[in-house]
């Protein structure tokens, strides 16, 4: 797993994030719904972990628990070995629905990713410029989300996640709202961002329901089953890097 050169010097001890024996329940229409049951999983540095499962298996809930957006009903969440009681400060999320502010321009939307950091002024401007360049959004800086295609919107989502320099990039079905061709091009760009290794990213967590996507991007594939959400299988993907040919079309 040593192909990602970003890992090593700065990696501190313990998994980037780990859940132990996590169970989560929702109350819905007076019914007690078990979304996750006894899930244990560690996201390690230096690899892309893909959580693969059908809709309703609780994989998005798992991502929200791992990033500290919601607290599990029971079980432990650890960040570098210490219990996580707030939002995971080293993690950033890319959402399926893009989640952009319609009244902000592309640059302003990306800048939201810096709000929780102490980065301001000239350094903020420099970071924005660099991340806009990285994701290919030059020329779109002043555009509003409504002017953008889905692919460009998700580029904004990715740039907003990367601008603060997270150690863990979490993506919840990031290509599922895009047409197949756009998804294809963006998927290989995300792979390129990860493998370039100079962004300070330590690990990536991807949630998907597409087997091909999991195989293309994942180093470790976590297969989840539904009702309630449990881990059925943990696989190591032996395909070597770089994976230049997309498996999406080798049927």
């Amino acid at each position: 797993m040593a192909y990602n050169p970003a890992v090593g010097a700065t990696a501190s001890s313990g998994a980037l994030v780990e859940v132990r024996g996590v169970t989560h329940r929702f109350e819905r229409d007076g019914h007690d719904l078990v979304v996750l049951r006894d899930v244990s999983l560690a996201i390690e540095a230096g690899e892309v972990t893909v959580v693969l499962g059908p809709s309703g298996c609780g994989k998005s809930t798992l991502l929200r628990i791992m990033t500290g957006l919601i607290a599990p009903t029971s079980g432990e969440v650890l960040c570098h070995g210490t219990p996580l009681h707030a939002v995971h400060c080293g993690a950033a999320i890319v959402f399926q629905s893009f989640a952009l502010y319609p009244w902000l321009t592309v640059t302003e939307n990306i800048g939201v990713g810096l709000h929780r950091t102490a980065i301001r002024g000239a350094e903020a401007a420099e970071r924005l410029r660099r991340v806009i360049d990285l994701v290919g959004l030059e020329g779109f800086e002043e555009a509003y989300p409504k002017e953008l295609s889905g692919g460009m919107k998700q580029r904004v989502g990715i740039a907003r996640a990367l601008v603060g320099g997270p150690e863990l990039l979490c993506m919840d079905e990031p290509f599922s709202a895009l047409d197949v061709l756009t998804a294809e091009s963006l998927r290989s760009e995300v792979y390129g961002l990860w493998t370039r290794g100079d962004l300070g990213l330590q690990g990536m967590l991807l949630i998907t329901h597409l087997i091909e996507e999991a195989v293309f991007l994942g180093d470790r594939i976590v297969i989840m089953g539904t009702n309630p959400g449990t881990i059925r299988e943990l696989l190591t993907n032996p395909l070597p890097h770089p994976r230049s040919i997309s498996p999406m079309h080798q049927r």
Binding site: G150, G151, D179, H249
Partner: peptide, 16 residues
């Protein structure tokens, strides 16, 4: 056509 679609198409054809 959107740029993303054009780029995706080129990549898919390249894969073939």
């Amino acid at each position: 056509a959107q740029v993303g679609e054009i780029v995706g198409l080129l990549e898919v054809v390249h894969d073939q």
